[in-house]
Amino acid sequence: MASVEHIDGTGPSGEDGVRRRDFINIAAVSFAGVGAVAVVLPLIDQMNPSADVLALATSPVDLSAIQPGQAIKTTFRSQPLFVRQLTPKEIAEADKVDASTLRDPQTLEERTVDGKKQWLVTMGVCTHLGCVPLGAGEGENRGEYGGYFCPCHGSSYDTAARIRKGPAPKNLEVPKFSFTSDTAILVG
């Protein structure tokens, strides 16, 4: 509105009446425009997740039944979540790799909670195009790096679920989670 007033006040025209009239018409149309934008906001916002969807944004997971070397597949925000207890051998394999040589450089420490290095919690969503990698189920192909293997386009993840081979650009995502007890976590 300020710019309109500016034009109104300092315009070259000497005929005051015409200027005042233009100003009112411009103001009226501007108000209609502002109103239209204000209406569009809720129309867009209604497509965001609703309160009931957001309320389900945390998932508790019980770890007590997961043996070393085993993994479970559960869900978090309607997507697969892999929870895996690494064996000492797998931890050693993951630590052996120089992180700086990796496509997405991260150490196992950075991907796990302090002092609970054996608990690897990742999304089961390949970072390439979103397929569910194999390796969480008993007897599934874990790929050549012993972690997860995505059958869609052949991405191989290692025992820290870091991308080692294939088209995927990133390591499997580690969601935000915390330990609520020694054998239970809350994801989200």
């Binding site: 009112i24 009226a28 108000f31 209609a32 204000a38």
Partner: peptide, 18 residues
């Protein structure tokens, strides 16, 4: 908001028809 906008719309309408 609508009261102001409608007031302006009325003034604009009167102007145009003056």
């Amino acid at each position: 908001f609508l009261l102001i906008a409608t007031g302006l719309a009325y003034m604009s309408y009167q102007n145009i028809w003056a």
